[in-house]
């Protein structure tokens, strides 16, 4: 992927597919360490599925279609000296609190670090694609925080859907303004 924000879009779509109703996307930069965490309350995966997803080419199971999303995230993280972990609770074993946490770490000062890119566009795309899902987004850049919580917006919007063009524009502007350094 050309930008990390595209990995974020792609990995978060896994949470959408898993039937999540709330997805948290967090990026925290402390010095040159970036930690990306995507947490969902979707159906989760059984341990052997997590294993397969992270090692698609070494698996003995051939029935399963090989996905490239997680491997691409692993590549992006590992090529900077970081890595990816996946913690998941499948709904069968954890009917009350199932879901998945994908954590990726990156060394942003590494020559092979992929630029973060346009996270605002990623959030707009996610919300447009799944206006019924709630997203919380935080990007902390050494103390400068950018935040969004669609639950707050929903309180204001009532029955007006989040994916209306004007609302998406507002969300984009709202985030872009927060990225601007204080005047």
């Amino acid at each position: 992927m050309k930008e990390l924000s595209l990995n974020v879009l792609d990995i978060t779509k896994n949470s959408v597919k898993a039937g999540a109703t709330l997805i948290d996307i967090s990026l925290v930069e402390v010095g040159s360490l970036l930690t990306l965490t995507i947490t969902d309350n979707g159906c989760g995966m059984k341990p052997e599925v997590v294993e397969t997803v992270m090692n698609p080419f070494y698996t003995t199971r051939t029935t399963r279609k090989v996905g490239m999303g997680v491997p691409l995230l692993m590549l992006a993280a590992e090529q900077t000296g970081g890595g990816v972990t996946i913690e998941s609770r499948h709904k069968e074993e954890h009917p009350e609190n199932h879901g998945t946490v994908v954590t990726a770490t990156f060394h942003t000062d590494h020559i092979d670090f992929t630029p973060i890119g346009d996270l605002v566009s990623t959030m707009e795309t996610l919300i447009m694609g799944s206006p019924e899902i709630d997203f919380t987004f935080t990007h902390d850049m050494n103390g400068h925080r950018v935040e969004l919580d669609t639950r707050q917006l929903r309180e204001v919007l009532g029955e007006v859907p989040l994916d209306s063009y004007e609302i998406i524009q507002w969300i984009g502007d709202f985030l872009r303004e927060q990225y601007q350094p204080a005047e």
């Binding site: 707050q152 007006v160 209306s164 004007e166 502007d173 303004e177």
Partner: peptide, 19 residues
């Protein structure tokens, strides 16, 4: 700074369009 009040104004304009 974008405010939730501004969002509320957009909502009011949108309400008719939703139909």
């Amino acid at each position: 700074m974008k405010s939730l009040a501004e969002l509320a104004a957009i909502r009011d304009k949108m309400k008719d369009k939703v139909v």
